[in-house]
Design a protein around this nucleic acid. Structure first.
Length: 586
RNA sequence: GGUCCCGUAGCUCAACUGGAUAGAGCACCUGCCUUCUAAGCAGGGGGUUGCAGGUUCGAGUCCUGCCGGGAUCACCA
């Protein structure tokens, strides 16, 4: 479906013929040859850098080689014009009929348009959100959640077999604090006056129902129970309740994971030991003492021997601790086991989506994955930079300590799922993002969500009008009928421009999937919407360019086919972003 | 101090992984509403891509060194 692959083949074929006649040697490497649409449309439809890349190995001047390649390309009969330009670019131009008939392809594919096979069904694991189950999600989690979800959609669209996963940190010290906090609420539910929640515990009201449920289920039996057994019960109840809260929050964004992977279960299954033994067997674990961190004073620093992983063998800055000074595992150890587990479940591509504050963790995780899978799995950690919430141009202050943070729910309820999702994706993941409440609900071109959805709504508005048009009474306007329209009626530059932009979509999907960058889809959609709005308005100045011309049925059908196809592309792209393509906005 | 990310128009950001004359939106000017949604469109001004070197046919993009901003820095997750 990506037409550029087709022309890549044609260019390779032409280069092959130059190998046959001896212009290029038989072992010429074509890896650096690209076949792309030129940035500037006045340079034609398709462009290749072949002559510039191959000039040196061929011992020729780029322009001379370009002439030869150009001749070979002309001989294929695929192009209406082939020319050499600039330092040696070869620009190819196609007959309008080629573009026009592609509209039928898009209509045929419908909302599935843009799907690609480059993933070859390979298994990709996307781990995202993975927020600690200690409370509802706040706005800080939102970006990573949306990003991971869209990336998973994108990879699916590109032909990968995607697993969406959430790692539950239900084994650490924070969970102990959570259990303690929940136990307090339990005592409260039994009628005890617990006063203020002590510093360091979770003060949120969301733990009250947990206490209530524990009281309902156990009466006062927990009060006199042995501490370990009690904590076990409270802990499980609290984590379950928190995960329910988190799942509800995620549902507000339309996010659903395939697997919720428990760190606790990992410990209990003995997989942490197994994984570490595996590293030990490779000679990558030793007992040693780390140097104190430089340039930063630590009062309680002690030079204690620790169990360390030789991450420096894999490019890390220093070796990393696997056990704490009290002998228990660090966070790192089970994480290694977890990533090994993913690999053993068949995932050769691993993607982790983290917040910016975990950036310092990337090298060691990469090292660990490289080591423990013996290079069998590739890990790509995507960092999402911070989101700055703005209201009326002023940043909203949040402090964790006071519990004064904006929750995910509050944001979604105020501006809507679509706006949240789109805006979180309308920025590169590693760039900070300002999220302005006023801006994301504004109905103007300054708000990309609106602008794209508006284009889609306008398309459906025209389709509705066509259906109700007296002059088109009884005319079949179904997709099946539109596919058969005389598409050669689409001759205006703006119409052809729109078609060409639509044909970029499969390329955008593939490039975005390979780069793990869903934001490219969002930017693409903005451009596509812009071309559509432009065409729409052209019909104001030139009535003969309007979509519905009752007295010219052929033209009307062709144009309805064009905008129906445009609607599909927008819907397809928005589908990747997880944003609804609205059919009406009034 | 170490590591990672960022630095592009007055502001907010893109730039198809090294391509041709660096593009959008906002803001600022000039036009366009008896007609498919003006919630829009057309046009204009605005740039030493932080600085200095290097790699090559070609650099915003890759390498080195500075400058400025952010994140992080045994054992927390």
């Amino acid at each position: 479906m990506n037409i550029f692959h087709h022309f890549e083949d044609i260019v390779r074929g032409a280069l092959g013929s130059l190998q046959t006649d001896g212009t290029l040697s038989a072992d010429t490497d074509f890896a650096r040859v690209t076949v792309e649409p030129p940035r500037d449309t006045s340079h034609g439809d398709i462009s290749t850098n072949a002559a510039m890349v191959l000039a040196k190995p061929a011992g020729m001047k780029p322009r001379d080689l370009a002439d030869k390649i150009s001749t070979a390309l002309e001989a294929t009969g695929n192009f209406s014009a082939v020319s050499v330009a600039g330092p040696g670019f070869i620009n190819m131009t196609l007959q309008p009929a080629f573009w026009q008939t592609r509209v039928a392809d898009i209509l045929g594919a419908g909302p599935a348009y843009g799907a690609s096979e480059i993933g070859k069904g390979e298994k990709v694991n996307v781990e995202y959100v993975s927020a600690n189950p200690t409370g509802p999600m706040h706005v800080g989690h939102t970006r990573g959640a949306v990003f991971g979800d869209a990336l998973a959609n994108l990879l699916e669209k590109a032909g990968f077999d995607v697993g969406r996963e959430y790692y539950i940190n239900d084994a650490g010290g924070q969970i102990g604090v959570l259990a303690e906090s929940a136990f307090l609420r339990y005592r409260e539910a039994l009628g005890e006056d617990i006063g203020d929640i002590p510093e360091g515990l979770y003060p949120g009201d969301y733990l009250k129902p947990v206490g209530k449920a524990l009281a309902d289920a156990h009466g006062d039996k927990l009060l006199n129970m042995e501490a370990d057994a009690r904590e076990e019960i409270v802990r499980l109840a609290a984590v379950d309740a928190m995960m329910d809260l988190i799942r509800e929050d995620l549902a507000l964004l339309g996010i659903e994971h395939d697997v919720f992977f428990s760190e606790r279960a990992l410990h209990q299954s003995g997989k942490v030991e197994t994984a570490l033994q595996r590293l030990d067997g490779m000679g990558l674990i030793y007992e040693g003492v780390l140097d104190p961190p430089k340039g930063k004073k630590l009062d309680d620093w002690e030079a204690t021997p620790q169990t360390l992983f030789r991450s420096t063998n894999f490019g890390d800055d220093f070796d990393r601790a696997l056990k704490k000074s009290n002998g228990s595992w660090t966070y790192f150890a089970p994480d290694i086991a977890y990533h090994l587990d993913k690999y053993q479940r068949g995932y050769t591509h691993l993607i982790d989506v983290w917040g910016a504050d975990h950036g310092g963790y990337i090298k060691r995780m990469n090292s660990a994955v490289q080591a423990i899978t013996n290079g069998g799995a590739a890990l790509d950690v995507k960092i999402c930079q911070l989101v700055r919430l703005m209201r009326d141009g002023e940043p909203i202050k949040m402090s964790k300590r006071s519990g004064n943070f904006v929750t995910l729910r509050e944001v979604v309820e105020e501006v809507g799922r679509d706006a949240v999702r789109f805006m979180m994706l309308y920025r590169k993941n590693d760039a900070p993002l300002d999220f302005d409440f006023a801006k994301v609900t504004e109905q103007s071109k300054d708000n990309a969500v609106f602008y794209v959805q508006y284009a889609h709504a306008r398309i459906h508005s025209v389709l509705r009008n066509a259906k109700n048009d007296e002059g088109l009474k009884g005319v079949d306007l179904s997709d099946a009928a539109l596919v058969g329209a005389d598409l050669t009626c689409l001759v205006d530059e703006a119409e052809l421009g729109l078609i060409k932009q639509m044909l970029q979509f499969p390329r955008v999907i593939e490039a975005a999937a390979e780069a793990h960058e869903p934001h490219r889809v969002a930017f693409y959609l903005f451009e596509l919407a812009s071309l559509f709005h432009s065409l729409w308005n052209k019909g104001k100045d030139q009535p003969d360019l309007r979509f519905i011309l009752a007295e010219q049925r052929d033209v009307t059908l062709a144009r309805l086919a064009l905008i129906r196809a445009t609607g599909y592309v927008i819907a397809s792209g928005l589908g990747v972003l997880g944003v609804e393509p609205l059919e009406e906005m009034r």
